[in-house]
Design a protein around this nucleic acid. Structure first.
Lengths: 344, 344
DNA sequence: CTGTTAGCGCGTTCAC
DNA sequence: GTGAACGCGCTAACAG
């Protein structure tokens, strides 16, 4: 075992040409004679030469890879179907452009460490407020970044929806349908963000939207119940149980579909019928085949991922990127889990 | 813009020490005096020095990344919930060990090209028969590989279940519960394998298991109905409709959960109650929140990913790996879709 | 024990 | 078509 790797040097010697010529044969065949190219490539084939991608990357200062920066441990992040969809769409774009996609979870629990050591050409992130520290590292490393569903307090190229308006729509629908006893299942303040962020968190922007909608009906935030939970199915179950214990509501407004599905499950397990006994309104519009029945606010994951990735690649390849912020549409999807109390 | 990157050289000059000392300060602080370490690190901090990970990788010959080789375009692969689960588990292990996970889709439609240029320390693959060409590149690049759910015809370290035994268990349960009028929904021969594979296909291994279980009850394969279909929800619906037309059975045995879910949907749409009118038994144990009710054979995606990743990392780090093939447990999950005809 | 000198790794590219 | 330098961090060998 362990013959040494074949290097460009070997091909040079064996073919009688110089390293330079060999390099040209691979990368700029026009730069040398057809004859030389052929001879060199033949030797390369005979010796099973594969240019070392590491050395190549080092030399070129390129990796043909972009990093997907995940705020939490991947086991949590990747359990989120919405994130999965976005990621799928990102990876599609990568594929089209010949890039690979590298998952970057916190390294030794540190996002900064991870970003310091990632060998990628740029970074795309989702639901993360890029802290000043991380932004700094990116700058020092001269890495481009695009933020999807960012918090807006970092001044980064971003792709997102108007959370306040979307949440307002979500709540307004519930109110329109006659519900007044409402419980909101919110996400943790930190779930989608870093500790040092200063402006409004996603959670807070959504809450603001709820407040507006409630205001239109003469209600206030204090008139509804708000529980906070992680963005997982299990947490949704738990939150629902808590809500059912504490009081009686006719509608659940969740900030995430996956949580809403958990709530739905818990409701059924307790013998409640949805939407007859209780209505559930989600947020995201995940495409899970079994969850199309969920009434929800749809934000296109496909769109977000694609726009984000294309923006990032354009930045990496040094093209223009005049628009530093892109909005994605959202809409209400009438499922089967929101009952219209005014008849139907 | 674009002050040059700060390099180790700059820190050396500025601190008055040599490059070596700077390197030691970061990587082997014990090698030099505490005093020197401090001074050097201070200068490094002041100048915002980040060791270039590319150069570092090149120098060390390590990347701290493993590649997940995806046979198809990622938009298809990542849509498979089972693959998602496995990937999640892989990435968890990576995280624990400080590795990143890089998705490697075919590059310019070529798996070989992708494998040639991937800067990773090892590769993990799923449901792919690794072709001779690719195996060769891996050898030349001295990359380790582990295959999950491989076809078994390539001689690689692999992780999988004992399909025959699992299928036997699946069928036996159905028989134990009193069913005799059974329809199997099988997968296409090629579904989980490459065209060039020589040994038993997954489908055939499973069928063999069915045969055994049937034998224990004095039955033969010819006593049951077998239909073949793709591993999709829609195909499951279609297959179910066909089955309901053709004859009357009391139990469906599907080789895939997603297909079983499709069958379930079709059954409901036709007014059949599950499991009162007809029982459905799946295979996979996908963790889809809404499908936990499906009676099925669970093969732990979590386990597969974990064992595969741990095996690969052990190989990369040069530890022993005497076992070239690992089996993952499977088990029966009593859901709500399998009726016990002997009462309950 | 501290610290330095002098390469090394490998492909790319400038300047001739 | 080539020689030589380059990118940047790591480390063997060596000196004090």
């Amino acid at each position: 075992m362990g013959k040494k790797r074949v290097t460009i040097q070997d091909i040079a010697k064996q073919s009688g040409y110089s390293k330079t010529a060999v390099s040209f044969a691979f990368n700029s065949p026009d730069r040398i004679s057809k004859d030389a190219v052929e001879k060199i490539l033949k030797v390369a084939r005979d010796l099973d030469y594969i240019p070392d991608p590491t050395a190549r990357n080092f030399s070129l200062g390129r990796h043909m890879a972009i990093g997907f920066l995940v705020p939490q441990s991947t086991s949590i992040a990747l359990a989120n179907p919405y994130l999965q969809s976005v990621m799928r769409s990102i990876s599609s774009v990568c594929e089209e452009h010949g890039y690979m996609l590298t998952l970057i979870p916190p390294l030794h629990s540190s996002v900064s460490e991870a970003v310091k050591s990632a060998t990628v050409d740029g970074i795309i992130t989702m639901g993360l407020s890029v802290s000043k520290g991380v932004a700094d590292i990116l700058r020092r490393r001269m890495l481009s970044i695009v933020s999807i569903d960012g918090t807006g307090d970092d001044d980064l190229p971003s792709v997102s929806i108007d959370d306040t308006a979307a949440a307002e729509l979500q709540m307004r629908k519930v109110l329109e349908y006659g519900h007044r006893d409402i419980a909101v299942i919110s996400l943790p303040r930190a779930a989608y963000s870093d500790s040092s962020s200063r402006s409004l968190y996603l959670t807070e922007r959504r809450i603001k939207g709820y407040e507006k909608a409630l205001g239109e009906y003469g209600m206030k935030l204090s008139d509804i119940m708000i529980v906070q939970t992680d963005a997982t199915f299990a947490s949704g179950c738990k939150a629902m149980r808590k809500i059912m214990e504490e009081g009686k509501v006719t509608a659940i407004v969740s900030m995430s579909d996956i949580v809403a599905l958990g709530a739905w499950r818990a409701a059924r397990d307790e013998g409640f019928r949805v939407p007859d006994d209780i209505s559930i309104m989600g947020f995201d519009g995940i495409d899970d085949f079994t969850s199309k029945e969920l009434s929800t606010i749809v934000q296109s994951a496909e769109d977000k991922g694609r726009k984000g990735a294309e923006m990032l690649i354009a930045m990496i390849e040094g093209q223009e990127h005049p628009m530093t912020s892109v909005d994605v549409d959202f809409s209400f999807r009438e499922g089967k889990t929101l009952r219209n109390l005014y008849g139907y």
